[in-house]
Simulated assay, not measured.
Amino acid sequence: MKIAWKHEWQAFWLCMGFISRIPMLARIDYSQQLMNHSSMYFPLAGLVLGALYALVYQALMALFPLVVAVIGVVIVHLWLTGAFHEDGLADAVDALGGGFTVDKRLSIMKDSRIGTYGTVALVGALALKVALLVELAPLPVWAVLLFTPALARMTPLFLMAVMPYVTESDTSKTKPVANTFPMPRLAVATVFSVLLTGAGVCWLPELMMAFVVSTTLVGVLWGWQLHRALGGYTGDALGASIVLTELSLLALLVAL
């Protein structure tokens, strides 16, 4: 039992270190299995990030207007995560927009340079995120910032469960996370997200509907696009799915 708890404790902190700049407060006995198991903690790690965003938002709102506070939170998010998922969005859109074969698309994703498609997608995503958060101001924005980063991180878990990983490079940081993703751990992450959503409806009554619809829509539509264009998913595609799910979630909360 002690060994199991130690494994899970290390898996959680490995997940935090993978998706953010937050220092890992645990000694990690790294292995591919541990890296693979750490993906179960994507939603919990997102909740930790969301708590930080909510605190920053509340502090900024005490000093600045709404728009300034929202932009400040987005900047903190980009710094705290190293723009990890936004980089995935830019690379994925560049590849799908500029490549005409699977090999060419995968080659574009590996290129560190950003192209026109990726630039447009990145600027559009950040601008839309700010606009949606400002529009949500009648609701408690701190609650939106708390819950959405956690819920948006369920989509990549679903994609990993039903699609093959198509990047063969041994240097890929996502490969150990994606290979043979255990279904029981997907179930645990799903239950956690559902319970979290249930808690969130106290402040955001439409959160459950928005979560189910956004995760399903992005999972199906983005998954279909990846299947058609790549025959599977890559690490960049998973990062893009988080950004797309979060934007869809915010848009549905505004609409509802």
Results as ranks from 00 to 15, higher is better:
63 L>P: 00
65 P>A: 03
10 Q>D: 06
87 D>V: 01
102 V>H: 13
97 G>Q: 12
222 W>V: 12
130 V>R: 02
51 A>E: 05
163 M>T: 03
53 Y>K: 11
214 S>I: 04
211 F>N: 12
49 L>P: 03
102 V>N: 09
255 A>D: 08
231 G>H: 02
38 S>N: 04
129 K>F: 05
118 G>R: 11
46 G>R: 07
187 A>P: 05
35 M>D: 02
244 L>C: 01
199 A>K: 08
116 T>S: 11
140 P>R: 04
89 L>K: 05
167 T>W: 14
218 V>Y: 08
34 L>S: 13
61 M>S: 09
173 K>G: 00
20 S>R: 11
135 E>N: 00
204 L>N: 00
225 Q>A: 13
137 A>L: 01
123 V>L: 06
132 L>G: 00
210 A>M: 03
186 L>K: 01
232 G>R: 04
118 G>H: 09
75 I>H: 01
71 I>H: 00
46 G>H: 13
47 L>F: 14
83 A>C: 12
203 W>A: 12
98 G>I: 03
189 A>W: 07
60 L>F: 05
124 G>K: 00
77 H>E: 07
154 M>E: 14
47 L>T: 10
22 I>Y: 04
87 D>P: 00
117 Y>E: 05
115 G>D: 05
66 L>T: 14
89 L>C: 02
128 L>Q: 02
50 G>D: 07
11 A>S: 10
83 A>N: 15
79 W>S: 05
111 D>W: 10
19 I>D: 15
137 A>R: 01
86 E>V: 09
87 D>H: 01
103 D>A: 08
114 I>T: 03
39 S>V: 06
197 T>F: 14
156 P>W: 10
222 W>P: 08
187 A>V: 12
72 G>N: 03
120 V>H: 08
30 Y>Q: 13
48 V>L: 13
18 F>C: 09
9 W>M: 09
139 L>I: 09
183 M>Q: 11
80 L>S: 10
150 A>K: 08
146 L>C: 04
122 L>I: 07
125 A>P: 15
219 G>W: 07
234 T>D: 15
110 K>R: 09
46 G>T: 03
63 L>M: 06
232 G>C: 10
234 T>I: 12
141 V>W: 00
63 L>T: 11
142 W>A: 05
50 G>S: 14
109 M>I: 12
131 A>E: 10
224 W>T: 08
63 L>S: 05
78 L>D: 06
25 L>W: 14
26 A>E: 08
118 G>I: 14
83 A>H: 07
118 G>Q: 04
156 P>F: 14
62 A>H: 11
158 F>I: 15
247 L>T: 01
38 S>H: 06
82 G>C: 06
233 Y>F: 15
63 L>W: 01
214 S>P: 06
196 L>F: 09
30 Y>S: 10
47 L>W: 06
77 H>V: 06
39 S>Q: 08
128 L>E: 01
2 K>F: 00
215 T>W: 13
100 F>H: 07
246 E>H: 11
233 Y>V: 12
162 V>P: 05
80 L>M: 14
130 V>P: 03
91 D>F: 02
62 A>S: 09
228 R>P: 01
169 S>Y: 10
96 L>N: 02
210 A>F: 03
41 Y>G: 03
58 Q>T: 13
38 S>P: 04
72 G>F: 01
137 A>F: 03
81 T>N: 08
155 T>M: 15
254 V>Y: 09
252 L>T: 15
161 A>R: 13
51 A>D: 12
193 S>C: 11
40 M>E: 15
247 L>C: 00
231 G>P: 02
107 S>A: 15
98 G>W: 03
